[in-house]
């Protein structure tokens, strides 16, 4: 498996650390109800099909990537930098 790091190009899977669902990006605001934290920390949809998850280019540039993949075909559909993602954090 290979992922295309927007900074480093197409690199082997061994350079990346897999973290989990993109849900970790949606950090509730301070004072949010505990259910919001439960959603972010624990509740996952486990889709058969297109999924978005987080990968860290650990032995590369240190970028966190948001990767769009298909769990059925294993196709990697898109990769973008977490820091530069559309609608990203402040």
């Amino acid at each position: 498996m290979r992922l295309t790091c927007p900074l480093c190009g197409t690199r082997d899977r061994r350079e990346f650390y897999y973290s989990g669902s993109e849900d970790y990006l949606n950090r509730p605001a301070e004072g949010a109800p505990i259910e919001a934290w439960d959603d972010m920390l624990h509740l996952r949809t486990n889709p058969a099909g297109v999924t978005k998850d987080l990968w860290y280019h650990e032995t590369g540039c240190g970028s966190w990537l948001l990767v769009t993949r298909n769990t059925i075909t294993h196709a990697v559909l898109a990769t973008e930098l977490v820091a530069a993602r559309k609608g990203g954090a402040a």
Binding site: Y17, Y24, L25, Y56, E58, W64, V82, A83, A89
Partner: peptide
């Protein structure tokens, strides 16, 4: 050591990249 570095990078890039 490695886990903390990864964590700091994540917090920075995901929650406060600017």
């Amino acid at each position: 050591a490695g886990q903390v570095m990864r964590h700091l990078d994540f917090v920075h890039q995901a929650y406060c990249p600017k």
